[in-house]
């Protein structure tokens, strides 16, 4: 099952070194959760982590669906 992971702000550092954008297309087994996806790329699960699935608030326990876009970034001071 294919999903897209977007890493924003300083979390870009979890992208492979040659990445030009901020997104990774990844394959996960059916039933995988957001937490599994993050573990796959080495993003630590912190309390201050903001997780969005398809732009809406979500947590690490959220079960992924085919085609989901997961975006993560560290809790940030505002703009």
């Amino acid at each position: 099952m294919k999903v897209r992971l977007k890493l924003f702000a300083t979390y870009r550092r979890y992208l492979p070194p040659d990445s030009s954008g901020n997104a990774l297309d990844l394959t996960v087994p059916p039933g995988a959760r957001v937490g599994d996806l993050l573990a796959q790329v080495g993003v630590p699960e912190r309390e201050s982590l903001v997780i969005l699935v398809n732009g809406r608030d979500a947590g690490p326990e959220r079960v992924l669906q085919e085609g989901d876009a997961v975006a993560v970034f560290p809790a940030l001071a505002g703009g």
């Binding site: 924003f8 702000a9 901020n22 703009g79």
Partner: peptide
């Protein structure tokens, strides 16, 4: 993020 990107990190969010 503020040091590395300024508040310009925000549009993508």
């Amino acid at each position: 993020s503020l040091r590395e990107y300024g508040t310009a990190y925000v549009p993508i969010v």
